[in-house]
Design a protein around this nucleic acid. Sequence first.
DNA 1: TCACTGACCGTGG
DNA 2: ACCACGGCCAGTG
Length: 116
Amino acid sequence: MNTAVKKKAIPREDDWIEKIYGMVRRIPKGKVTNYGALADAIGSRLTSRMVGWAMNKAHTVKPSVPAHRVVNRDGILTGKHHFASPTLMQELLEAEGLTIIDDQVVDFKQHYWIPS
DNA sequence: TCACTGACCGTGG
DNA sequence: ACCACGGCCAGTG
């Protein structure tokens, strides 16, 4: 084991991924946010890409993460293709009272939620 | 082992 | 106003 300690022996906060999940779970129903806001809310060297990458694994984590409430800066459902069904993301958002047109959230800024 | 990619965003020319 | 590029972490070929 001593010879294989070359890996990061410092656990640090590798749980930044779980922090993202925690934030996403705090998103109120009918509200949406973007990747950059979550990354900035955590404050660490996290970037929007890391958030997206974490979302990719989100479906493997419990409790379930409402990743459908996370869209990109333009309010476009960029990650809809990663759901069980390409239209599932839109269906979920519409079920929460949002209107989606052409894979884009209508009045996005109106339903925009800032992690605080 | 090295290099690239990814559900992005901000800044510079 | 538009185009191009860097940044951060982890996983995969």
